[in-house]
Computed example of a mutant assay.
Amino acid sequence: MKTSRRLAIAGSLLLTATVAPFAGVQAAQAAVSCGYTTVTVDPLITHKGAGTPSQNNGLTSFRGRVFQLRTEPTFDYSQGNIASGYKSGDKVWIDVSENQGQSWTQCGPYYRDRTYFSYHKGKWMRVCVNVDGITQCATNGNKTGPGGSKWWDD
Rank of each mutant, 00 (worst) to 15 (best):
P109G: 09
G89L: 05
V66E: 04
Y77F: 09
F67Q: 00
F117H: 09
Y86R: 01
C107V: 09
M125H: 02
D90T: 06
Y77I: 11
Q79T: 08
V96M: 15
N99D: 14
Y86G: 01
P109L: 14
Y77M: 13
W104D: 03
A83I: 02
G101H: 00
G85F: 11
Q79R: 01
R114Q: 09
D90Y: 07
D95W: 03
G108D: 07
R112D: 10
S103A: 15
W93E: 04
T71E: 12
T74M: 13
S84N: 00
V92C: 14
W124Q: 06
N99G: 08
S118P: 06
S84G: 00
R63Y: 13
G108T: 02
S97D: 02
D90V: 12
K123I: 06
F67N: 00
G64A: 10
T115N: 07
Y111S: 15
Y86C: 07
V66W: 08
F67H: 00
D95Y: 06
F67T: 00
Y119E: 04
Y86D: 00
W104F: 15
D76P: 03
D113C: 09
Q79F: 14
F117D: 06
Q79D: 02
D113P: 08
W124M: 08
Y111H: 13
Q106P: 06
K91V: 10
S84R: 08
D76A: 10
I94V: 12
T115E: 14
Q106I: 11
G122V: 02
I82V: 11
A83E: 00
C107Q: 03
P73C: 00
R112T: 14
E98H: 11
Y119G: 03
V92E: 07
Y86H: 01
S103E: 09
M125D: 04
E72M: 11
L69S: 09
F67L: 02
K123T: 04
H120N: 15
M125T: 01
Q68V: 02
R114V: 01
N81C: 10
V92R: 04
E98F: 15
R63N: 12
T115R: 09
E72N: 01
G80Q: 00
S118K: 07
E72T: 04
R63T: 07
R63H: 13
G80S: 01
Q79G: 02
K123Y: 13
F117C: 06
N99P: 15
S88Q: 06
H120A: 12
Y116D: 03
W104C: 12
R70V: 04
S118Y: 10
S118A: 15
E98P: 14
G64I: 08
Y116K: 08
S78F: 05
R114F: 01
Q100K: 12
M125Q: 09
I82K: 00
W104G: 14
Y116Q: 08
S103I: 05
Q100C: 13
I94D: 13
T115P: 14
P73W: 02
G80N: 04
K123M: 03
Y77D: 00
W93T: 02
D113H: 12
G108S: 08
K91T: 07
Q102Y: 13
K121E: 09
K123N: 05
R63E: 07
D90K: 11
Q68C: 05
V66D: 10
A83V: 02
G80L: 10
R70Q: 10
R70C: 12
Q79E: 03
